[in-house]
Write a protein that binds this DNA or RNA. Structure first.
Lengths: 337, 337
DNA sequence: TTTGGCACTCCACTGTCCGGAGTGCCAAGC
DNA sequence: GCTTGGCACTCCGGACAGTGGAGTGCCAAA
């Protein structure tokens, strides 16, 4: 019985603190939420919650503020991801359906996510690793120069310019194109790489060797894995206080895509909605920020991740709902493509 | 004679204010710069400079601060763009030479500029408008689905997926490819567009019509003109004070690429190093920021622009030198490609 | 176990004061 | 006619004390 009320008190504290940004006291709490008990009772509960480490007071005779542990409990047990309203769903659908290509989908998603949550949004480009090769095109720019274009199932296109040792006749180009495509088209990246390697046992300087090598290089190029788009940085302006402690490190992290990727988490974690709160991550500087992220991709595959980064004092239910909704719509679009 | 000294005083004020970030008084001025006159004399000069609108005092009995007009005079007449040191030049060359493709060049440039100037750097992708068509490739994905790939002289690749009304035989595809290329290859975008339009007088639903239409669309797609990369946002953290008045609007502008483009200026302005100081631009909110930008591109063409955005109180000579140096190296690289 | 009462704490805000830095002006000097 | 030293004046910003309010912890009674 008291246990239940204590949790209600914790929830009330989190909700109040998130909206007012100020430590919340016992009196305000009973007034704003219909707790049906007196402030004194709430005080007792608060003392208990503080003993257990869920809340803390900035100084004696101040209201209480949730700790990271408190937010964690709130997220895990006291909140259900509230579904988006019909209007919001329509807005998401309308905006994302207007996208013309993958770049556009990704860019629109970031903006959308940033708008919905009023936080900084981060979207990772679909990773190469699980996608398949749709087509390889070879374009002759000069007799001894070739443009190799790699088209993937996700819609990504990688191109490389190669210099051949010798001139290549048109018929040979046609041959080369079909050989390469027979080996790679339709295969998952990993398979395609092995197939291409099998074509040229010892890396020679033949046109085929050069092209295969280039393709393998393009496929294993991890720069593309690290591609990330960030949006809504203007929302950082709303942090207001603690500029140095919160905004500065975050601003720095946003530039370091490697760090962002770590924050978003591993794509292999699947579609699960993950929430990292405050100090729970490896980066001390980001102790006052939280990350809400999830995987997305066509079908039930999780090709990449997207999410938002914000202050620990954020609207978790809202953020979680928005992240999940956007991920679902993006996944659906990738499905259709 | 006095005129000369007045300018020296203005220069000293600008330099001091930029480095100390505090209003500079007459005494500190004579001490730090060997002006060879007494503080009282400097005060007279300052009063004159203030009358003419080059400097101002935040409040009575405070030191002086340069006005936008003061910075303008400083930039136009009191400073020479100091060349980069040999070490810096080497660093620029090393970093940029490592780039593997256009994307990489652009990304490295932004980072480099941000590092060199410790400001926010902005680089526009080479515009389509002046570049020429290197090749058009048509890839058959299914009998009635075609991937249209447009390759430009700048190394940019645009791709579009088109659905044909009917199936297309392989021979017809070969024909189609050569017709389109005969019309477009080697031409400047504008010419290519007219040539393609001439191919199909009335926009029909023939494969040729569809493809031509798609190409024209891809060429005139202004999304690509607007592509911009921003870096060094973490440097905003160094703004320190006036967060609301300076950082917030800038952060918002950085998200609006259209605004950024306007700030960078027209590419047609050529290679000229342009400096916009404070209120000189159309955006009131950015009254406390300055932009140093220049055009770049292969040969002497100015395909796009790059530059930095920072507080009006910035190191102009240093920024100008860095922007110019990076633009030159990037241009050189585009030359070679 | 809940509640009202009460003493206590601490912050945030306000007003006052004072020193320092800087200015403007004036009269004397070069 | 500039330049310079002197002097009175202004204003900011930090230090300091005082006050009110919000909130707490604890205790005894219901």
């Amino acid at each position: 019985m008291q246990e239940e009320r204590r949790l209600a008190v914790l929830r009330a504290i989190v909700e109040d603190y998130v909206s007012t940004e100020e430590p919340v006291g016992s009196k305000a709490l009973v007034e704003r939420h219909g707790l049906g008990v007196s402030p004194a009772t709430v005080r007792n509960d608060m003392a208990a919650l503080e003993d257990e480490g869920y809340i803390t007071q900035p100084h004696t005779s101040a209201g209480r503020v949730p700790t990271d542990k408190g937010y964690r409990l709130f997220v895990d047990r006291l909140t259900t991801v509230k579904p988006m309203s019909a209007a919001e769903k329509r807005a998401i659908a309308t905006i994302l359906d207007g996208a013309v290509d993958l770049d556009d989908v990704v860019n629109r998603s970031v903006r959308l996510l940033a708008q919905l949550t009023r936080q900084v949004a981060v979207v990772q480009y679909p990773t190469l690793s699980r996608s398949t090769v749709r087509h390889v095109e070879l374009v002759s720019l000069a007799p001894n120069r070739l443009l190799v274009v790699l088209i993937l199932s996700t819609g990504r296109v990688e191109q490389r310019l190669v210099e051949l040792g010798a001139d290549l006749a048109d018929e040979d180009l046609v041959d080369l194109r079909s050989v390469v495509n027979r080996a790679a088209t339709g295969e998952v990246i990993a398979e395609a790489v092995t197939a291409l390697r099998a074509l040229v046992p010892d890396a020679g300087t033949t046109p085929l060797g050069t092209v295969a090598e280039t393709l393998v290089d393009a496929m294993s190029d991890h720069r593309s894995d690290e591609r990330i788009v960030v949006g809504g940085a203007a929302n950082l302006a709303r942090y207001g206080d603690n500029f140095d402690s919160a905004v500065r490190p975050l601003l720095e992290a946003l530039e370091e895509h490697v760090i962002l990727l770590k924050l978003l988490g591993e794509a292999s974690t699947g579609e699960l909605l993950t929430v990292r709160i405050g100090h729970e991550g490896p980066y001390q500087e980001l102790a006052s920020t939280s990350v809400v992220a999830t995987g997305y991709g066509p079908g039930d595959e999780s090709l990449a991740r997207l999410g938002i980064v914000g202050p620990t004092r954020m609207d978790y239910p809202g953020s979680m709902a928005a992240v999940r909704a956007v991920a679902r719509y993006v996944s659906r679009i990738l499905d259709e493509a």
